[in-house]
């Protein structure tokens, strides 16, 4: 069995990449492989907001990732630089930047690119969905 990490740069609403990544993640877990980490970068970090309110007949990608993370104990990490400039902030980053609110979904964490490097070093395969 192999250890995977995923790099997701796809915008949640203008491309299919987030959905492809979720489907790929579910499939590899069904096959008994391990998913160490999903790293969100560039527009991919937009999915980490807990304030998305898509129409009822559309998939809520944030909730889909969160469900997978909670059920299968997977790390969902958003790049801090990519997230801050797109207005995706946790409590600590909101305070540090003197912002009035925060919106990071509790299933996600904010961290640095070192987490991507570590995932590449410690996984058998890194697959990118952009």
């Amino acid at each position: 069995m192999a250890t995977y990490s995923l790099l997701v740069t796809a915008n949640p609403y203008s491309s299919q990449g987030q959905l492809s990544a979720i489907q790929f993640a579910k499939t590899l877990l069904e096959q008994g492989h391990e998913l160490m980490r999903v790293f969100f970068y560039a527009d991919g970090v937009l999915v980490a907001s807990r304030l998305h309110a898509p129409p009822a007949d559309e998939i809520n990608l944030t909730k889909a990732w969160a469900k997978l993370a909670i059920e299968k104990d997977i790390e969902l990490i958003a790049c801090v630089t990519a997230a801050n400039k797109r207005g995706i902030v946790n409590v600590a980053e909101a305070e540090r930047n003197a912002l009035t609110g925060n919106n990071l979904d509790p299933a996600f964490e904010i961290s640095g690119l070192g987490q991507l490097t570590e995932a590449m070093l410690n996984s058998d395969r890194l697959i990118t969905f952009g």
Partner: peptide, 19 residues
Amino acid sequence: DYPQFVELTLQYDKSVSWL
């Protein structure tokens, strides 16, 4: 299909997503 997609990523040494 998706299960074969996962198998392909193991069959090849690495994957390159052309972005």
